[in-house]
C-alpha cells in the first residue's frame, strides 16, 4: 500500500481538516482531543466538519462496496475543500487514499474520491512529512512498545512515528519480537474469526509483555482497543495510548501545553 503522490501539502496558514475517526467519536475522545492540541501546537488551524461520520472502511472490508460507497460519498461531501485532511489513524487514511479509489474504479465520481485521497494524511506522516518536523519537544518518561499498525505498511507513517518517538526526551522505545506481525484486530474479522483473532492478539501481547513496557503505543486505536480489551479480559491489563496522546503528554510534561485544556 502506498500513499498517492503527489499529495496535497499544507499551505502557509497550516489550515487542516480533522477527521476524528468513528472509533474516537464513540470511545476515544481524548485521542481526538490530543490530535487537536498537537496540531494547534504546531500552528495549524483545525477545522472539524461537523457532518463527519466514518471513512466507510467497515463495509468496504466486509465486501459490501455499495454500502461503503454511500458512506465514502458522504465523506467526500463533508470534507469538501482544498486543505489537507489529517486523521489519527493509519487505517482510515489508507481507506481514503487506497481503499476508496479501489471500490470507485468504475464509478463516475472516482476523481472526487481520488482527490480526497491525495489530501489525506495519517497524523505522524503529516507532522513529519507534511510539516517537516523531525524532533518532538517536551518530555515523556516511559518505556514504550510501539505497535506499527498494518495499514501503515508501505507508507511513511511507520518511519515517521519511529522518528518522533525516538526524539522525545525521557522516552525509550523498546524493540519486541515479530513487530511486523498483525495484532489480529482486522475490523469485523475480530468478531467473525474470534479464535484466530484472539490467538494473534495473545501472541502480540506475549511479545509486547516480554519487553516490559510502561505503555503500548500505536497510531491506530482499533489495534489498541483489541489488544487492550484482550489484556484486560485476561486479567492482565496493559496501558495503551495513541501516538497523539504521547505527543500531547510530552508537551504537557515539558510545560509547553497547559496540564489540561478546555
Amino acid at each position: 500500500m502506498t500513499a498517492p503522490a503527489p499529495r496535497l501539502r499544507p499551505a502557509a496558514d497550516r489550515r487542516v481538516q480533522l477527521m476524528a475517526t468513528c472509533i474516537c467519536d464513540a470511545f476515544y475522545d481524548d485521542v481526538a482531543g490530543a490530535t487537536v492540541e498537537v496540531l494547534e501546537h504546531l500552528g495549524c488551524t483545525v477545522d472539524f466538519p461537523e457532518g463527519q461520520t466514518c471513512c466507510g472502511q467497515p463495509a468496504f472490508n466486509g465486501g459490501d462496496w455499495a454500502a461503503s460507497r454511500r458512506v465514502v460519498r458522504h465523506t467526500v461531501r463533508t470534507f469538501a475543500g482544498d486543505c489537507p485532511v489529517v486523521v489519527p489513524s493509519g487505517s482510515c487514511a489508507a481507506m481514503l487514499f487506497h481503499g476508496a479509489p479501489l471500490e470507485f474504479e468504475r464509478e463516475p465520481d472516482l476523481p472526487a474520491v481520488a482527490a480526497l485521497g491525495r489530501r489525506t494524511w495519517e497524523l505522524a506522516d503529516f507532522i513529519v512529512n507534511g510539516l517537516g518536523i523531525r524532533t518532538w519537544p517536551g518530555r515523556y518518561e516511559a518505556r514504550v512498545a510501539f505497535h506499527r499498525s498494518c495499514h501503515s505498511r508501505g507508507t511513511a507513517s511507520g518511519a515517521a512515528s519511529d522518528l518522533l518517538l525516538a526524539s522525545i526526551a525521557g522516552l525509550q522505545v523498546l524493540p519486541f519480537g515479530e513487530g511486523e506481525q498483525c495484532c489480529g484486530f482486522g475490523g469485523t474479522f475480530s468478531v467473525t474469526f474470534p479464535h484466530v483473532s484472539t490467538g494473534m492478539g495473545t501472541l502480540k501481547l506475549d511479545h509486547i509483555r516480554a519487553a516490559r513496557p510502561d505503555v503500548v503505543v500505536s497510531g491506530d486505536m482499533s489495534c489498541l482497543m483489541h489488544l487492550g480489551g484482550l489484556a484486560e479480559k485476561g486479567g492482565q491489563p496493559v496501558r495503551t495510548q495513541h501516538l497523539a496522546q504521547v505527543l500531547r503528554d510530552a508537551l504537557r510534561h515539558g510545560g509547553l501545553l497547559p496540564a489540561a485544556s478546555a
Binding site: 467519536d25 476515544y28 481526538a32 482531543g33 487537536v36 475480530s190 467473525t192 484472539t198 484482550l230
Partner: peptide
C-alpha cells in the same frame, strides 16, 4: 451478535459517544 462476540473475549471500552464534539465546542 458482533458485540457479544467481542465481549466474550475482550472487554469493551467505555462508550463516550459525542464527548469529543462537546469538548471541541467548549474549547
Amino acid at each position: 451478535p458482533a458485540l457479544r462476540a467481542w465481549e466474550s473475549r475482550r472487554s469493551l471500552p467505555e462508550w463516550r459517544g459525542g464527548e469529543f464534539r462537546r469538548w471541541l465546542r467548549a474549547r
